[in-house]
């Protein structure tokens, strides 16, 4: 069975480096070498924003994806970037797997669109690297902030800032030259691209304004046409590699925050359920309420229940 796997972004990010080699190895073991895998990195086959058409079209078989890029096809995914999604990485590690009602809810929606969700994971709450002190929601007013997705853009707008669309590669110089006042994104990227060199502050918000749920998705037809034995091997290989990667992401998060702190950046942490947390939550209360109205009640309930 030939299998093409595509990832984008830095090949050094744990979502790639801690997943792909393990996945290939386990696939080999579990199938007795029946898969011929070709993997592509850094968006050389499919770029991040094109995954939602490329996977259903079968351009590649499996791809890394952010959930948010699917908002143009599965509008419900945007709930993951609203304050309604308040799960920790640990919760995601233990629960957001096949069989979990939320996982299955999204998987069903994706299948209607020609894709199967193989795995979901949390690469960690987004951080905001800024050149202005950022402690409270008020600090965000009038500031232009680079965002990575539509959902993050809505949050910044809600807080009174101006979201700016900008390629990952331009963020460093954008921060340095003051093209933007700050940038919101994954901690791994912020550390990997050394954004702390060109910013003075970093907000570690632990999820109160959003986290980054990513996944691996597969072309549905390919998945369904696959020999059941091989499909089983594939699912097991995905599940085991995903769990190990999610654990790695949890372990490394605190270390990366330390790295930023040691660089001399002023790191502000919003602890879950602290007084500061409450302030941010309140600032986004209207936004959360709107979201509660906007998204299907069943889904809102599922998330609230867990």
């Amino acid at each position: 069975e030939r299998l093409s796997i595509s990832t984008w972004g830095s090949p050094k990010h744990p979502q790639v480096s801690q997943f792909i080699p393990q996945f290939e190895k386990k696939l080999e073991e579990k199938s007795g070498g029946k898969f011929r895998v070709r993997s592509f990195q850094g968006g050389e086959m499919v770029k991040q924003e094109f995954v939602p058409t490329a996977i259903p079209q079968g351009t590649v078989d499996i791809s890394l994806t952010t959930m948010d890029t699917w908002s143009g096809r599965v509008p419900e995914v945007s709930i993951l970037t609203t304050p309604l999604w308040n799960k920790s990485m640990q919760w995601t590690r233990d629960n957001l797997k096949p069989g979990d009602p939320i996982f299955d809810y999204f998987d069903a929606k994706f299948r209607e669109q020609g894709a199967v969700v193989l795995a979901l994971f949390d690469i960690g709450p987004a951080v905001v690297s800024t050149n202005f002190p950022l402690k409270t929601p008020d600090d965000m007013k009038g500031k232009s902030v680079r965002v990575y997705s539509r959902g993050a853009g809505q949050v910044i707008q809600e807080l009174g800032g101006s979201p700016v669309t900008m390629g990952v590669g331009d963020v460093y110089s954008g921060l340095q030259r003051g093209t933007v006042d700050g940038a919101m994104g994954g901690l791994g990227g912020a550390v990997g691209l050394k954004h702390y060199e060109v910013t003075d502050h970093m907000l570690v918000q632990n999820g109160v304004i959003g986290t980054l749920v990513h996944g691996y998705v597969m072309n549905r037809d390919k998945f369904e046409r696959m020999d059941p034995e091989l499909r089983k091997a594939l699912l097991e290989a995905v599940a085991e590699s995903r769990d190990a990667m999610q654990q790695y992401l949890i372990d490394i998060y605190a270390k990366q925050v330390d790295e930023v702190r040691q660089s001399g950046s002023n790191v502000v942490t919003i602890e879950q359920n602290s007084a500061e947390w409450k302030v941010w939550e309140d600032a986004l209360a209207d936004f959360a309420e709107n979201a509660r109205q906007e998204y299907p009640a069943g889904l809102v309930k599922l998330i609230a229940a867990d």
């Binding site: 058409t53 699917w70 908002s71 143009g72 539509r150 853009g153 979201p163």
Partner: peptide
């Protein structure tokens, strides 16, 4: 046609039907 029949829009704040 594929974009139209699946009502795919861009995943940006502008949400342009593709």
């Amino acid at each position: 046609w594929y974009s139209w029949s699946n009502t795919i829009s861009s995943s940006t704040l502008l949400e342009v039907p593709l």
